[in-house]
Nucleic acid binder design. Structure first.
Lengths: 346, 346
DNA sequence: TTTAGCACTCAAACATTTCAAGTGCTAAAG
DNA sequence: CTTTAGCACTTGAAATGTTTGAGTGCTAAA
């Protein structure tokens, strides 16, 4: 696990060259371009050792090396140099995110700016930290239920569940109890996951009614989540997506709310979260890296700003851009939001 | 322009086979699959004539024929058989578009349902027919203008324009006059086009201030337009998009609001509008067909429901699906919208 | 411990061949 | 005059073969 200086230098050069060129990096390139004062043969020997240790990979025997997930991780944790944003980028951020408009508009601005600067798809979620206090299920007719969610802060959300079979009053009561037991206290932003647990536990008992209620709550929540994508078109510039199948999978993945939600909610909530390739539990995301950051304003949690792209991404620039934007939100320079219609009142 | 029965039968068979198979249709296929009681040689002669008349095209000399834009147009206008929706599709529509939720939710439902059934990208726009009554430009500071738009119905929209140079009061007055002259009475949904005309006419005079004001209004309007895409992932199943360049162009086009806005606003506002391939003035859309339909409820214009896809699309099914949904909106079976926060009050 | 040198591997690029689909034309048949 | 059988011809796609160059691992000497 301890790498000597030379190995560090080699690893960092491989990572940086590969990030830039997207081509496997060979020993000769390293010697010439990165002024390593050894012969290519020596570098080859070192690279072989780095490969055996799991930091590098070789696409095929006569190719150069590319970083493995472990290699990227080591680079990010130990080798990466901080990146100062260029004045151009700073100006662009400051001119575009001006704080005008409601939260939705600002979120959109942030997504647009980040995806422009980094030329990568960007996802911004606006989370609702308000928690569920009480859930009521009201029978409107034999086959129609009204679900009402009351929050701690006093807002009310409601949605309908349509059934194909009639449902007994007693079942509704039971259902209400289960929902309250499992969900009260849960932040709205985590309701999705909590609901999945509920149906996994109780599906055998009241399959249809419970299923419909859960789905209608999920649907209502999905409207609330306000996930904003931007810059999807940037993937076409990246050689990782030269294959149509890859594009297809990526687009499908991004459109699948659950995958992204889960990925983002897995990130530790405190600071900056970097999940590289196979570190992600979701197999479909194993070729991608997600870097995300919570944004706060006046100690109020606004949401999560995330960048998703191939493992081969410019980690240094991405991180400094995200951090800069986070600071911008913390600074008092921004105007206050004019109006915020996050959730309709009860 | 008059085609005899045999030519009609051949043209319609070519169109339908090509829609299904995406492969150029040869004379042998037609004889065998469509029971045309002539030899392949006769069919070949007829196809040659149809090609000379412009109804068919030949990708290369040893390939079968594919319909030209003119061929599709003739098919749609004269040959196409009405398509009854399957019970499965009808059930699916009825179960999914239930009229619950606000207008935004319903629009999303419509987009989702249509893209699912037709397996094609779908765009639904919610138009705002309220018209501009008065525009005020207020100087907040030397380099910051507030633009206020008052509507006939009494709602107020406002946005900021940031300048890099200071601007004289007199210029602001002049600008206000020009904006009011050109825009008052314009429906919000057409503001985009009207603004383009304004800057084209007056750009020489007050380039910066006017430009910024126009842009900020446009940005504000774009939030209002509520364009909802759905089913973008469906393009990957179509051989038209096997080439990555095509996908790239399509995605870029769809993300470019102006292109789609213009394309949709060109469609005649009354009934069903079908714009096939090169019939579209926008060159970038020349390989695509846009079918769209205005949706009304209680004689109130709700918006436009549009399907965009390659010229080779299932015209009959697309049209009947859209029509069915339009009727569903007209029918009184749908619940009334619970609440509608189209635009914030003044 | 480092390095020069060399045999070896493999993907990518390019060239060549083969194949099948489908045509247009001609001349004969209806 | 219309239809059709027959055939030479064209062409893209797929399969196959060839070349090239980048890069490696290993060996033996410095």
């Amino acid at each position: 696990m301890k790498l000597d200086e030379r190995k560090k230098k080699i690893l960092s050069s491989v990572v940086e060259d590969y990030i830039e060129s997207a081509e496997p990096v060979g020993s000769k390139t390293l010697v010439e371009k990165y002024h390593l004062d050894y012969s290519s043969a020596t570098i080859r020997n070192e690279m072989k050792l780095l490969e055996e240790e799991g930091y590098l990979e070789q696409p095929h025997v006569s190719a150069g090396r590319i970083p493995s997930t472990k290699g990227y991780r080591y680079y990010v944790d130990n080798l990466m140099k901080e990146n100062k944003l260029s004045m151009v980028d700073i100006d662009y951020i400051n001119n575009t995110i001006n704080g005008f408009g409601d939260t939705d508009a600002i979120i959109q601005q942030v997504a647009d700016v980040v995806s422009k600067i980094l030329a990568t798809p960007t996802v911004v979620t606006k989370s609702n930290t308000d928690t569920v206090e009480n859930i009521k299920v009201v029978k409107i007719s034999d086959k129609l239920l009204l679900v009402v969610l009351m929050s701690k802060n006093g807002t009310v959300k409601d949605c309908f569940a349509k059934l194909t079979d009639t449902v007994e009053d007693q079942v509704i009561d039971q259902m209400t109890t289960i929902l309250n037991q499992n969900l009260s206290g849960t932040p709205f932003s985590e309701l999705h996951l909590a609901l999945n647990k509920v149906i996994r536990k109780d599906l055998e008992v009241f399959s249809e009614a419970m299923g419909e209620v859960v789905n209608s709550i999920k649907y209502e929540m999905s409207k609330d989540l306000k996930k904003l994508n931007s810059g999807m078109e940037n993937i076409f510039e990246k050689p990782e997506f030269s294959d149509i199948e890859k594009v297809k999978n990526f687009v499908n993945m991004i459109s699948t709310k659950e995958i992204i939600d889960t990925a983002l909610s897995n990130s530790k909530d405190d600071k900056l979260s970097i999940i590289i390739g196979s570190e992600n539990k979701e197999v479909l995301l194993n070729d991608y890296t997600i870097i995300s950051l919570d944004i706060e304003k006046d100690n109020k949690y606004l949401g999560k700003l995330s960048v998703i792209g191939p493992k081969r991404m410019n980690y240094a620039k991405t991180i400094s851009t995200l951090k800069y934007i986070k600071e911008k939100f913390n600074s008092t320079l921004m105007l206050n939001n004019k109006n915020d219609n996050d959730s309709k009142g009860g």
